[in-house]
Design a protein around this nucleic acid. Structure first.
Lengths: 240, 240
DNA sequence: CGTGTTATTGAGTTGTATCAATCCCAGTGG
DNA sequence: CCACTGGGATTGATACAACTCAATAACACG
């Protein structure tokens, strides 16, 4: 039961509140193929639990001008805004299992359940923190720094340790990365080439990237220090 | 009593929960002159209530490379992150009265108070929505669109209606605006001049801006439609 | 009425976008 | 198993929006 898995995400680990059953009534399971758009109710916000797979949350400024707000992987909770200055859609990157909760209705149901509210707040805090970091990255960093920052973030999310190196199998295209970092597909490609020339990464095929010099990448990203636990939380809403 | 004013912000309007007294014990009042940095505990997150005045939340990438994450005005709640890939500071723009709550401690105190948690979550949702809009703005819009978007946002925040026009008295410098939009001070100045040439604004002194054509500005910003209520909420955390 | 700070304007530079031409890979079907 | 094929990726040439440097102007303050 994928819904059961999603509901268990709301528990704090101590005990399920009395509103869990009510949440279950709201939940809707969904299965998407690769590259599909999640069919969410228009005009209403949705809280989406990624049971398996990977997706991107996209803000649409215009045709050919999209901003990837966040990449999301199995276990993530994504809040998809239903209204605002721009439209948001959730795209699957690979085959996905999702559980969708109408957000406003969910909030009413859990209004008296401090454990679930606290859980949601924790994740909203984390998402806000990452979104702010992203704004800084896009607003005040060079293409080279953004690229390094992206790889460091992805390593924390889906990196597989290989000795002192990290292997990434990126489910997103160069275009997706560009739309996430506010750069073009060509600039992304050039940055990959530069990182390869500098022996900081090695690539294989379109998607596999081996991080050869993690400290070097972090330095290039211009981070203060190692990212804190909140940025690699298992139960993380809205990963960037 | 400014602390009393801050605490009242946590109530939902129905009734104060039992944890309000505990919140009061954590609160610390602060008064800043113009252009000061709020002395917040290092390494810990703080929730700051702007009782009066105006402030900016700044993320520091490096010297001369700062990103203004949000501008905040009287009534706002700002969550200042204590740790992360970059350092954050809260700068006053004018004389300010603040109430500071250590965020982690506050969260423990209100852990069983669903009303306050819901309030905090509402505001975190709103802040996340605005931060996402900002990321889109910085990542995928031209200088002209960003400038227009900034003025539209400020109008919703501190605009004073004058007939069918809106008067702004901006408390921030051109540098602050540039640091907020990911542009330089010179580009901001040139955009002001262009908007003046196009008869969309009129300026007086450094800080006063009259918006002559609000619909035109919103069109230039590339927004879908009118900004929803959530973006001009009275009780708004972390206004961008 | 100075005086220092902030804003404006101009001239030139640069990083990234754009346009365009291969190249490479992952499927697909023979 | 291998050639075919089409979309993504890479690389190069050029354009342009915003940055940088610099000089002047406007404002706010004492």
């Amino acid at each position: 039961m994928t819904q059961a898995a999603s509901l268990s995400q709301f528990r704090t680990g101590v005990a399920g509140g009395p509103s869990l059953a009510a949440c279950a009534a709201l939940a809707q399971s969904l299965r998407l193929g690769a590259g599909e758009i999640a069919p969410l109710p228009r005009g209403k916000s949705a809280l989406v639990h990624i049971v398996s797979g990977a997706a991107k949350l996209v803000a649409q400024a215009a045709a050919e001008r999209e901003q990837v707000t966040a990449f999301n992987f199995a276990g993530d909770l994504v809040l998809v805004p239903g209204s605002g200055p721009h439209a948001y859609v959730l795209h699957s990157l690979v085959e996905c299992e999702l559980t969708v909760f109408p957000y406003e209705a969910l909030r009413e149901v859990v209004a008296d359940d401090p454990a679930i509210l606290a859980r949601l707040l924790d994740n909203c805090d984390a998402a806000l923190g990452r979104c702010r970091e992203k704004a800084l990255m896009i607003g005040r960093k060079t293409a080279s720094e953004r690229m390094a920052g992206f790889l460091v973030m992805m390593a924390a999310r889906i990196g597989v340790p290989h000795g002192d190196m990290t292997l990434l199998d990126l489910p997103m295209s160069r275009r997706d990365i560009g739309d996430s970092l506010g750069l073009t597909i060509e600039t992304i490609s050039r940055q990959f080439s530069l990182l390869r020339d500098d022996h900081m990464i090695a690539t294989e095929g379109r998607s596999k990237v081996m991080l050869l010099d993690f400290a070097g990448l972090r330095a290039r990203a211009g981070h203060l220090a190692e990212a804190p636990a909140a940025f690699s939380s298992e139960f993380a809403l809205d990963q960037c």
